[in-house]
Write a protein that binds this DNA or RNA. Structure first.
Lengths: 100, 100
DNA sequence: TTCATATTTCGTGAAATGTAGAAAGAAAAT
DNA sequence: ATTTTCTTTCTACATTTCACGAAATATGAA
């Protein structure tokens, strides 16, 4: 059973989704972490339950901001360079480099 | 009775407020209009009741994105250059110039 | 002051979002 | 096949957000 992780095409992204995804401090914190390291779901936001972090990651992935790929049992999360960052380069760069 | 319109100081602004204000299509449409013309509340978003537009303007003002000043009976809305645009220049510029 | 204009606030309901525990899914090791 | 590990979905609930009409406020004119 291939557990495909769905990543939207760049053309399916919309500014609204990107901005709503970015309008949450926890999700921006996730992006800040991913800027320097590929990280597992369980390592991001240690103070939140896994299910909560998982939902945040789903929002970020649907917005085209991150990429998730399975590696063994775990799933590696990283910034996605061909998605929102490609379609709205200035916006994504400005916000993800603004720090928290 | 002076009805002061409160504009937050630049130092009181926060990224979260700015991004949440920008994460709404109607509010971004307002900003797009204000980019070229000072406009009355009643002229922005003709398809929405005044009360709704008024709340959007309040959110934008609290985020430091717009300035409101009374002129006679009406209130003129314009982009604010010393607020969010000064504190988060790249972000605000990137988003407000991305258009819809 | 009374009236007209322009906007804001209030009260309410609908929709979206965030949180979290429990159960289920996916992959590797035994 | 069973167990273990990591993650996601399910389900429920609380909070937030948004929209709208009605009433209230602010200003200028008659």
């Amino acid at each position: 059973m291939a557990s495909d992780i769905e990543h939207p095409a760049e053309t399916d992204l919309c500014l609204d989704g990107v901005l709503r995804a970015l309008a949450d401090p926890d999700r921006r914190a996730i992006l800040t972490t991913l800027r320097t390291t590929e990280t597992l779901c369980s390592s991001l936001l240690p103070d939140r339950p896994r299910s909560t972090v998982s939902v945040h990651l789903k929002v970020l992935r649907a917005a085209g901001l991150i990429e998730q790929r399975r590696q063994g049992k775990a799933i590696l999360n990283s910034l996605r360079s061909d998605g929102a960052a490609a379609r709205y380069p200035e916006i994504v760069h400005a916000i993800t480099s603004a720090d928290g």
